[in-house]
């Protein structure tokens, strides 16, 4: 039973981790905490549902397409709105993301088909795999594999592509990067677009597990502590933070009194901040 619950925790943790990654990606490149990642996640899931149910697309095509749609939405939001906050106090951008999130959610609830029923996105992997006494849900395995895949491609992107290296350079020191001929505005766009795409990807992965509905974005409330635990500026830290939160939550749910599960995550975050003020993945004070 313990192993079973652990597995579930890891799968949930991977989704937290992906959303946490999108928080960190945006934060590193723009020094803004984005409060609309949950809404972007919900939008990603709805985009996939729209393509499958409305457009009749096959699922394997609709999923990457939904992620691309979110990439485009991220770029549009940056170009149309968030770029104007460059050079303003940080709070401006933070509040902008908050407002944009409200508008995104409001926009979705204005579509009758979105609110009048719940939608289900069937992955071809649905089913249960038995491994001795363990029962692995296809959707959970898919989540874990897809998260690993997304992290590997993200790492490769940052290491081996010009755009990835440029983005890293920009987040290290935007001024020096600009002197080297990198356009900071373009990198700003790229960071927001990638952040949106990652959140959308998490939404698509979450869709078969929780069904698609306008309140899906609430999961960001758990992903944000995961990002903080991971150090807010470390990509591997965010993923580890996500899995840690997922597993911790599952264990407290199993062993501690009822209700502790929902507090545990925030307790963990406080404890980590107390012991490691820069988060588990953050660099030491000397760096």
């Amino acid at each position: 039973m313990l192993a079973q619950v652990l597995l579930s925790g890891i799968a949930t943790g991977c989704v937290y981790g992906l959303v946490a990654l999108s928080f960190v990606l945006v934060f590193k490149a723009t020094e803004t905490v984005s409060f609309m990642q949950g809404e972007l996640l919900m939008l990603g899931a709805f985009a996939a549902v729209l393509l499958v149910e409305g457009g009749g697309w096959p699922v394997w095509l609709a999923l990457p397409a939904a992620v691309l749609v979110l990439f485009a939405i991220g770029a549009l939001l940056e170009g149309g709105v968030l770029r104007r906050a460059l050079g303003q106090p940080h709070l401006t951008a933070v509040l902008l993301t908050f407002g944009l999130g409200l508008m995104l959610r409001g926009g979705v609830t204005m579509v009758p088909a979105a609110t009048h029923q719940m939608h289900r996105l069937e992955l071809p992997l649905a089913g249960v795999l038995s491994l001795g006494p363990l029962q692995l849900a296809g959707e959970h395995l898919a989540v874990v594999l897809a998260t690993a895949l997304a992290c590997a491609s993200l790492a490769a992107f940052f290491r081996f592509t010009r755009a990835g290296v440029a983005l890293r350079a920009c987040s290290e020191d935007a001024r020096v990067a600009a002197l080297m001929g990198i356009s900071p505005t373009r990198m700003h766009t790229l960071a927001w677009a990638l952040g949106a795409a990652l959140a959308g990807f998490a939404g698509v992965l979450l869709a078969p597990v929780t069904l698609v509905h306008p309140g899906m974005g609430l999961i960001a409330l758990k992903a944000f502590p995961a990002a903080v635990i991971g150090g807010l500026s470390s990509l591997p830290g965010a993923l580890a933070g996500g899995v840690l939160v997922g597993v911790f939550e599952a264990l407290t749910g199993l062993y501690l009194p009822d209700g502790a599960k929902d507090l545990a995550v925030y307790g963990l975050m406080l404890a980590v901040l107390l012991l490691f003020p820069r988060g588990l993945g953050g660099r030491g004070a000397a760096a």
């Binding site: 979450l206 199993l254 009822d258």
Partner: peptide, 18 residues
């Protein structure tokens, strides 16, 4: 046994296990 969840929860593995 009684076990709760918050609105918007995504995973019920620990509740079912309890």
């Amino acid at each position: 046994e009684r076990t709760g969840y918050k609105r918007g929860a995504t995973d019920y593995a620990s509740q079912i296990a309890r």
